[in-house]
């Protein structure tokens, strides 16, 4: 079962580049959009991440950072991010394989990949919105932007 609103977001510590790791705790005080996807290079993942790449400015305006995450290796991520000119980190849930995906309830045991899912984590590390998308469909940015708006409204 995918983790739901009001659950604490499980901590992680994963490679984002061949020599750098990122922890969820690094982003205290910021909102984090954690986008799990099945595989680097696959067509739908590329479309989805391309769209998010184009939307970064709107996310930043809402104090949110975007992190992509899949079970691909840090070297695959490096090549994929360079080839697509992504301006956000890709985390490698590679060893032990899929451990973080499992903790968030979005690991696909049959294919050995992460499911396509998005979590919006607030400034205090609490999940405020989560969404599991059918594998074959690009979820777009609509849901994330609406959830960010809702968080702003709840603050007021």
């Amino acid at each position: 079962m995918i983790l739901q609103k009001d659950s604490p977001a499980p901590e992680f510590n994963l490679y984002s580049t061949p020599d750098q790791r990122l922890k969820l705790g690094d982003f205290k005080g910021q909102r984090v959009i954690l986008a799990f996807y099945p595989a680097d290079w696959s067509p739908i993942c590329s479309d989805e991440l391309n769209l998010f790449n184009e939307t970064l400015k709107l996310f930043t305006a809402k104090n949110a950072v975007l992190l992509g995450i899949s079970v691909d290796s840090k070297w695959s991520h490096l090549a994929f991010a360079q080839s697509r000119k992504f301006h956000f980190p890709l985390l490698s849930d590679f060893e032990p394989k899929g451990e973080v995906s499992r903790q968030y309830g979005v690991y696909n045991d049959v294919d050995g990949e992460s499911k396509r899912a998005i979590f919006l984590i607030d400034e205090h590390g609490i999940i405020q919105w989560s969404y599991l998308s059918p594998d074959g469909i690009n979820p777009g940015a609509e849901g994330i932007l609406a959830a960010l708006d809702d968080m702003d409204k709840a603050k007021k």
Binding site: D47, E48, L51, E54, T55, K57, L58, N138, G140, A141, E142, L145, A146
Partner: peptide
Amino acid sequence: IEKDFDGGLRSGVSE
């Protein structure tokens, strides 16, 4: 232009 883009995203435009 950015407002158009934003409105498109919110209407579910991805392609």
